[in-house]
């Protein structure tokens, strides 16, 4: 613990990261905070400081829209985080075994991440096409008729499904990296103690994987609370705003003719504060459960 504390080396090691990070992430963000206090609308040479006006607008004139978006975002976030974590941890444990096809399984599950969101959008738009798509035809067999992504009762559920489908490979790969670093001896010891299968998973794997669980949960919270691209390609926020997440809402504000990007920046700051609070709480709780050697 004390080693290196008096040393200059730790700081030297941190330097490159701190320099690059400040230059390309931190300073630009501060600029963004400034924009959120202006009526900047694309013309960098002509905009005015408007104080907290943009923030006021978000919580007065547009309150209904913003609040609705926050609610949907939270539902989206919680559901995806739970589902995706549960599924990907199981998948990671399964593909971590010595199976002949495990390389094939890993690649297929991870593939949507390689193809990108555009492709995911096309694929599921076609699969959920209510006119000739396979899902709709299957439902017709059971005399069920649905507009699928156009049905405000199930659109959010479908978007959540696609989100998990597309991103569980990402979490799986992270879990896999965690599993790879659990010493095999621990399992053998557990086996000698009579623990196998579920028991060894419960008492050896899970505790040691806790740090990866934290990582995944936090990455998912961040990813889902800020999400807009998958919504953009699937439903564009509809139907009846049932999938209008905050990220999507901000995106539409950048584009709607009159509203300024200063306003969009202010909304992005609101989003930042929300994510920060949620992540802070999540971080606090899951850290307590982590096992440190």
């Amino acid at each position: 613990m004390n080693r290196g504390a008096s040393n200059i080396w730790p700081w030297l090691l941190l330097m490159p990261a701190l320099i690059l990070f400040s230059l390309f992430v931190l300073f630009p963000t501060i600029g963004n905070v400034y924009f959120s206090l202006t009526d900047y609308a694309g013309n960098i040479h002509n905009f005015d400081f408007v104080g907290l006006e943009n923030y006021k607008r978000a919580f007065t004139a547009d309150y209904d829209g913003v609040w609705n978006a926050i609610k949907i975002t939270l539902i989206f976030c919680i559901t995806v985080t739970i589902l995706q974590n549960a599924i990907s941890i199981v998948l990671a444990v399964l593909v971590n075994q010595k199976l002949k096809l495990s390389s094939f399984y890993r690649s297929t599950i991870f593939m949507p991440n390689i193809l990108g969101i555009l492709v995911v959008g096309l694929i599921w738009t076609l699969v959920f096409d209510p006119f000739s798509g396979p899902v709709s035809q299957l439902l017709n067999h059971f005399k069920i008729n649905s507009a699928l992504l156009g049905d405000s009762k199930i659109a959010l559920a479908l978007v959540i499904f696609v989100q998990v489908w597309a991103h569980m490979g990402y979490s799986m790969v992270l879990y896999l990296a965690g599993l790879q670093s659990i010493p095999k001896e621990l399992y053998e010891a557990a086996y000698i103690d009579g623990a196998s299968g579920w028991k060894s998973f419960r008492h050896v794997t899970l505790p040691l994987l806790q740090s990866m669980v934290t990582i995944n949960i936090i990455l998912m919270i961040i990813g889902t609370l800020g999400t807009f691209d998958i919504i953009f390609v699937l439903t564009n926020g509809g139907p009846n705003e049932s999938t209008m997440t905050l990220g999507m809402y901000i995106f539409t504000k950048i584009f709607s003719g009159g509203s300024s990007q200063g306003y969009a920046s202010a909304l992005a700051m609101v989003q930042f504060v929300i994510i920060f609070c949620v992540v802070f709480i999540a971080q606090f709780y899951s850290r307590r459960r982590e096992t440190e050697f």
């Binding site: 931190l26 300073f27 630009p28 963000t29 600029g31 924009f35 961040i222 992005a268 700051m269 930042f272």
Partner: peptide, 22 residues
Amino acid sequence: FLYMLFLSALFLPAGLVPLLFI
């Protein structure tokens, strides 16, 4: 603090125009 700083950068709103000037 550094840890939280890096972590929060994951969801800091990207400031494209300021970045451009840098």
